[in-house]
Amino acid sequence: MPSQLAIFWRSFAENRGAVFGLGLMLLLILVAALADVMSLHGPIEQFRDNFLTPPVWEEGGTWRFPLGTDDVGRDMLSRLIHGARLSLMIGFTLVAVALTVGTSLGLTAAFVGGTVDVLIMRLIDVILVFPSLLLAIVVVAIIGPGLFNAMIAVAVVTLPGYVRLARASALVELNRDYVTATRAMGASMRRLMFDTVLPNCMAPLIVHATLGFSTAVLDAAALGFLGLGAQPPTPEWGTMLSSSLQYYQRAWWVLAFPGFAILVTVLAFNLFGDGLRDALDPKLKR
């Protein structure tokens, strides 16, 4: 009998897009990990005689700056590579925070029930009422701009999905006999929550986290673009976009490449998340 992992991989590999997404994701992670080795120059290193140098295949391009330089003479490729590290770090941190906090809140709501449940879920409903980016802007406006604060803001607006998903799955699992059996053995509430119920709720949460990763990257970039996230000269893709907006007619590469990087990252994680959902959902299995 094949192991669960092998079964999972077989149904996952059927989805070409998902495998493509996984490959792209691994490539991004590799680039981010090896950023210091792969980049030709420092991300904030300026070359004063090379402002807005075009990419190598355009007229006037040079192999010294394969993707050109920006308005203050920084190498685009090096900044993009370091930006990948930053974006992935933002994504992973956000997802980890939102997943941990959201799951704990959702499980607490499901297990304790009553007033606590109502309190948590109504609070989540209030967060859901506002458009996520708008709420993130409000949060940043209150606690001030900056990468860390932007991450807190995005974490707050992505929380509801995790809380609701964790609560709903936990409520389903709580009615199963194996939970009753564990309870009859005298298991503590903490054990029931984290050892018995949580592992069985993980599949939808993992899928949501993977898809939420791209939302997190996108939201963080959007805040950066609005000047509320990472501040210059941090090589964050959204911030790079906003600071070079005025050159788009003269030097397309300063806008196209950061935008393309965001697109590829979001696409990779979305494709992977989609495939993951299909592979983990028993209802879609034949």
């Binding site: 006999d177 194996y178 059996a181 009859a184 053995m185 592992p199 069985n200």
Partner: peptide, 18 residues
Amino acid sequence: RLSVQMVFQNPYGSLNPR
């Protein structure tokens, strides 16, 4: 409580699948 244990109707739901 420990001196009373239970066997359930549905053997598919009474064992933790993980």
